[in-house]
């Protein structure tokens, strides 16, 4: 509307602030880089430290929230984006945001070394670049499983067996990206008709749907429920903390999404944003990604991560992000109609 006025205004403020900083003298003229992220907070410190060691002129300022909230926040700000770069947020969200012309293309130095399926090859330069994958998995609480004499499920189909009735929790795709990732992967693997039939059967076994994608695994870790449909990273982490969990990658294949970044179209710190982008595709960065996640964008870097299901990378389905983004609302509506229709469980 009045971008000129605003930018002048902000420039004024920036100038004032710069002047203040200079007069202070002690503070070095570092660039503050505003990074919106959904990466879990405990990892952010080490990313900041590692990056700033390589780029001492840049000071990362995180705005961290869960994927849903950060995406909503970004969308709400779309008329006047505040972030310089969106980093470590689901690729699905970045696709949604790029529909609103949120990003500017940039090919980070060395992006070609990444696996092609992990970054935006439709646009050149790419609007978004993936960092690492988070992968659907089943968290199985062995203690509670034994208590209820449940066999360990090995496949998605296992979960529809009557023995698991009331013992399974999964995220509601209408409120969780992980939930959508599951539904989308089932449809991509089985085709629409079979996938819905599968979900109908699964629905009778589901105790309830959660709002957050990590919650099912957290609940399983606490023994609130024996089986939680969640993602592998969360399961491995809980197991590392001491939870009696088994993390299972079902045999049929698993859905996945990427943590990815994109540079916001109107950033005033383009140089710093590009610096972070460049750094994020380096081997060093990928090695850090690998500390918690088994699958990273740069091939050949990843080492097995403790308590991740072995061989999970080979089970990752061929995920069509564009298709998923295009069909998202239709699938969500259908899902809501089928399973979210009434308060009382149908079973």
């Amino acid at each position: 509307m009045k971008p000129k006025l605003v930018s002048k205004f902000s420039l004024g403020i920036a100038a004032t602030m710069a002047a203040v900083m200079m007069s202070a003298g002690v503070v070095q003229a570092k660039t503050d880089l505003l990074v919106y992220t959904a990466v879990e907070a405990d990892e952010l410190k080490k990313f900041k430290k590692a990056f700033e060691a390589d780029y001492p002129d840049v000071n990362i300022k995180w705005v961290r929230d869960s994927t849903g909230i950060i995406t909503s926040k970004l969308l709400a700000e779309k008329e006047n984006p505040k972030a310089d770069i969106v980093w470590g947020v689901a690729a699905t969200s970045l696709l949604l945001l790029s529909e609103h012309n949120y990003f500017q293309g940039y090919a980070p130095k060395g992006v070609e070394k990444l696996d092609k399926k992990y970054y935006d090859t439709k646009n050149n330069p790419p609007l978004w670049v993936g960092q690492r994958a988070w992968i659907a998995s089943i968290c199985f609480n062995t203690v509670e499983g034994k208590k209820n004499s449940l066999p360990m499920p090995q496949t998605w189909n296992d979960l529809t067996k009557p023995v698991y009735k009331g013992h399974v929790i999964m995220p509601n795709p209408n409120s969780s990206g992980t939930g959508f990732l599951d539904v989308s992967s089932w449809i991509q693997m089985k085709g629409e008709k079979k996938a819905w039939a599968y979900m109908d059967a699964l629905h009778t076994n589901i105790a309830r749907y959660t709002h957050s994608g990590s919650k099912p695994c957290k609940l399983a870790a606490k023994g609130e429920i024996p089986i939680g449909v969640s993602f592998a990273y969360r399961g491995a982490k809980s197991k590392n903390q001491g939870a009696p969990l088994e993390v299972i990658a079902p045999a049929e294949g698993v859905g996945w999404d990427l943590e990815a970044f994109g540079i916001v179209r109107n950033t005033k710190n383009l140089e710093a944003a590009r610096a972070l982008a460049d750094w994020s595709v380096t081997e060093k960065a990928n090695k850090i990604y690998n500390e918690e996640y088994a699958v990273v964008a740069m091939p050949g870097v990843a080492k097995p991560v403790k308590n991740f299901p072995p061989g999970i990378e080979s089970k990752m389905i061929k995920n069509d992000f564009q298709w998923a983004a295009a069909n998202r609302i239709r699938i969500l509506d259908e899902w809501r109609k089928r399973y979210d229709g009434k308060s009382e469980p149908k079973s």
């Binding site: 849903g68 995406t71 709400a76 509601n172 709002h211 969500l332 979210d340 308060s343």
Partner: peptide
């Protein structure tokens, strides 16, 4: 209701689902 609502939908969690889950403002 977000934590203990289970399958029992109420308006407030619906807003959450619409806005946070579906980004359907």
């Amino acid at each position: 209701p977000k934590v203990v609502g289970g399958k029992y939908n109420v308006l407030a969690t619906d807003i959450y689902k619409q806005v946070i889950g579906r980004q359907d403002f």
